[in-house]
Design a binder for these strands. Structure first.
Lengths: 183, 183
DNA sequence: ACGTAAACGCAATGATCTTTGCTTTAGGGA
DNA sequence: TCCCTAAAGCAAAGATCATTGCGTTTACGT
């Protein structure tokens, strides 16, 4: 007997196909109807999968959406590095704006906001870590909390409540301007 | 026949009592379970009201929660009026911060954020109207969008994702300072 | 290849949630 | 005060979601 026998999970083949189908279905439905209006039977039908399979794997819709949402984020991408903090922040903000112009990303942020109260799901923790990195690399000068308050927060507010206003093409620059005004 | 007969809505008595009971029940349940886990039969039982009454009035849970979230800050309250725009904005921001320190208010905002995607439900539209009033009364000088981006948005962000950071007692002043910096 | 069991599909069941027709209560104008 | 009807209550039917037992498929270790 091997005492170190792992539970022998299945990662490929049909299981992987189901996962992929479910992921696509969730992303589509979350865009079309919003996080709160997505049910498991709905996802199952769109994915061509039996509802029971989803119930057994995730338990409920919130867990499923949260699990699939975290997969979308790419924490390993390279950050802007021009040598100028102000330019770096502007480019970084622009990346984030473009990300949230995708309807699926915006919808998932809404779900994250709703879930943030109960539980420890903070889907923006990575953005804060990135801000810290940018500021510290430049030797400080701007508190990280100010970057959050005056660059990230306005973007998040617009994504949540005024999505059409994300299209203003000098938004990132304007936000960074105000952050640096009078310093 | 009087062509100018108004629809004759009922605003007082039993209707008002039902509204009050439902509001209390929603606020309690939203704190206890989170916006997404609140159902209409649940609210009806807690409020001592028939579920049908709620269905007929609001249609579904999301609309109900959003509606109650919108009107929780009385839209008719007096706004600060010191004669100085900067002081008025700081006092106004302070009111809003104190409002969202109540857990029920924070929970309702999360629900509003989740529902904001589909439809034009913006549970913060009253704040925008108030900002417009304050700015116009002072003869302009600060774009309303800037007030939203740099005063309201940071507050909302903190309510949603970093509720503990609402306790900093000079937050309102700091936000307004940055709004006016370099003008 | 082969065997084991993980994961899926199916179907029946139970638990909510939602809708609908009707009756009763009571707010507000005449 | 009286009348009209908006709004609430009640109860039954319908729809949808969630759970569970059982048989089938098939991924993975040997």
């Amino acid at each position: 007997m091997s005492a170190t026998s792992s539970p022998a999970r299945r990662t490929g083949g049909r299981s992987a196909a189901v996962l992929a189908a479910v992921r696509s279905a969730v992303e589509e439905l979350v865009q079309e109807r919003g996080t709160a209006q997505v049910t498991i039977p709905m996802v199952a039908e769109r994915a061509g999968v039996n509802p029971t399979s989803i119930y057994r794997r995730w338990g409920d819709a919130a867990s499923m959406i949260n699990d699939l949402a975290t997969y979308r984020i790419s924490p390993d991408r390279a950050l802007p590095d021009t040598g100028d903090l102000r330019a770096d922040l502007a480019a970084w903000a622009q990346e984030i704006i473009e990300h949230f112009r995708q309807p699926a990303a915006a919808a998932l942020l809404r779900g994250g906001a709703a879930a943030a109260g109960a539980g420890d799901s903070d889907c923006l923790r990575n953005r804060r870590a990135e801000a810290t990195l940018l500021v510290e690399r430049a030797g400080g000068g701007v508190p990280v909390d100010d970057v959050i308050d005056h660059v990230i927060a306005p973007i998040v507010y617009r994504v949540l409540f005024r999505p059409w206003s994300l299209e203003e093409d000098d938004l990132a620059a304007a936000l960074v301007d105000r952050l640096f005004a009078g310093r």
